[in-house]
Design a protein around this nucleic acid. Structure first.
Length: 288
DNA sequence: AAGAGGCCCTGATAGC
DNA sequence: TGCTATCAGGGCCTCT
């Protein structure tokens, strides 16, 4: 699920709740996530004070006073839920994809604070929790990721330099976190529609103008998604207030056979497959 | 070495 | 209704 904008929203609500708080206890009910949770994670987190919460790419990072970092990736279906007073569930952006209702199954991890807890739920278990024990490990871990589209360093010049020798298609490139991090399948589709570029086009054949559009619209689309509170795909009808609404603004994603939204365009959106991922486009607007 | 595809897993939905 | 097949927002690993 969660691409950069969704993780950013989770980060913002998590920050409000747990920054400067101390974890009392951690309960792990199922260690078999994408990577097996290390045996001593409960001990490493017990009684640790949180000094910062931030996000890199699609990763949530919790930094502790003792210089540890907890790295959380939500995979495809991971959600965090704030649970108060043992049973009462509070509506919160932490339960980004689940309408504020705590699911009954697949609650794998509980992070317990004084008076409330954060529950990690993940049906598919593609998410993971890992601990990095110092700043050096932390920096090394995130070294392998390219800049985020919303970074200042993500410019036409940066892209041009890499793209001219890339033999892969532009959509696969946008999904490769090594060169640009934070874009997932939804936003890759949207960015290429805004840029009027065919997702199958090989990177090395992109014109300067097209590279400029990719740089520009990557920023535009992600910033707009963050502003709208991200995209909520499931159970959206029950979500109120601050929850995501960017799914209402999708131009192509999940719009197979629906009319292209470009003014005066008569085409319908089509669905194709690129590297086993669904790809939506307008063959008229994205000819080249 | 870079790039494409398989695979991890459960649940929702479509089609018969 | 109830089966089976397909697909889903990610990213690591393997093979070519």
């Amino acid at each position: 699920m969660p691409e950069l904008p969704e993780v950013e929203i989770v980060k913002q609500s998590l920050e409000k709740r747990v920054k400067f708080k101390k974890i009392e206890k951690v309960l792990i009910k199922n260690r078999n996530l994408r990577f097996k949770i290390q045996n001593n994670m409960e001990n490493l987190l017990k009684n640790q004070k949180i000094i910062n919460i931030f996000r890199k790419s699609k990763y949530l990072i919790i930094q502790f006073l003792n210089n540890q970092y907890l790295i959380i990736h939500l995979g495809m279906s991971g959600t965090l839920h704030l649970v108060k007073n043992n049973k009462k569930i509070r509506r919160t952006n932490l339960s980004f994809y689940k309408s504020g209702i705590l699911p009954e199954k697949h609650n794998h991890i509980e992070i317990i604070f004084s008076g409330f807890k954060i529950i990690y739920n993940d049906p598919r278990r593609f998410g993971f929790f890992i601990i990095l024990s110092n700043k050096k490990d932390f920096i090394r871990y995130f070294n392998k990721f390219g800049p985020e589209p919303i970074d200042k360093s993500f410019t036409k010049a940066y892209l041009s330099k890499i793209l001219k020798s890339k033999n892969t298609c532009v959509k696969s490139f946008l999904l490769n976190q090594k060169f640009v991090s934070g874009i997932g399948n939804i936003y890759a589709n949207e960015i290429l529609f805004y840029s009027k570029i065919n997702p199958r086009k090989l990177c090395k054949y992109l014109s300067g103008t097209e590279v400029g559009k990719i740089a520009k619209y990557s920023k535009v689309v992600l910033n707009k998604a963050i502003k709208k509170g991200g995209s909520s795909i499931k159970n959206f009808k029950n979500i109120k207030g601050k929850d995501g609404s960017f799914q209402n603004e999708f131009k192509v994603y999940n719009r197979e056979n629906k009319p292209c939204l470009t003014f005066n365009c008569k085409e319908n959106i089509k669905k194709i497959t690129i590297s086993n991922r669904s790809t939506f486009l307008c063959f008229s607007c994205q000819k080249k």
